[in-house]
Amino acid sequence: MNKIMIVEDDKALCEELSLLLEKSGYSVRSVKDFSDVYSQMISANSDLILLDINLPKENGEVLLQKFRKKYDTPVIMLTSSAGDIDEVVSMSYGADDYITKPYNPTILLLRIAAVLKRSVKSGQLQEYKGVIVSSIKGSLVKGDQEQVLTKNEMLIFQLLLDHQGEIVSRDELMTVLWDNDEYINDNALSVNISRLRNKLADLGLQDAIETRKKQGYILI
């Protein structure tokens, strides 16, 4: 389980953020005492830090700069300013990503997952029940059988696979698709899922994707 540290001085926001991350299966630790954030950042030994820019004692950007000199733990900056300057400064100080409030929760989770994935060297090819998933070629291969997936189908399958055994809501699927410039509507999503099911069935994987009424889909 990945450990995430939250440095955010607004209590309500911090609480909800912890809740969101815990629900998504991260272990969360949030900073309560802002008199010495830096030493807490070091001692926490977390896998990722969410760092607010406007903090009571010390500016988040200054903290980041100090922290980056010695440690390479991934850091995502959170801020409510809509200006470009903070973004440029943060990135130049070595932030791994930068998200403005109010963030879309699904996108926040995606970004966190992406940053964590980047920091752990992961193999290019994933496998699912004897099927090799190649996201680069956009295809599923089983033995000498190959099924080519469309971009949409691949995005959906990838998300389900990353959360194998967990329910993925339609909302999350939609957010990911839209985030990848596929502006499809509700009906199109259903069509894509049923096509994906057929393709999986052709590879001998019947009923791999289950529908959970009013919740979403799950890859078994």
Partner: peptide, 23 residues
């Protein structure tokens, strides 16, 4: 105004998360 916007965005961010956490 800039400061106010900055402040106002924080509860909006909380609201979004609350709504997401209580689907």
């Amino acid at each position: 105004i800039e400061l106010w916007v900055h402040e106002a965005k924080i509860p909006v961010a909380s609201l979004r998360l609350i709504s997401h956490n209580n689907l």
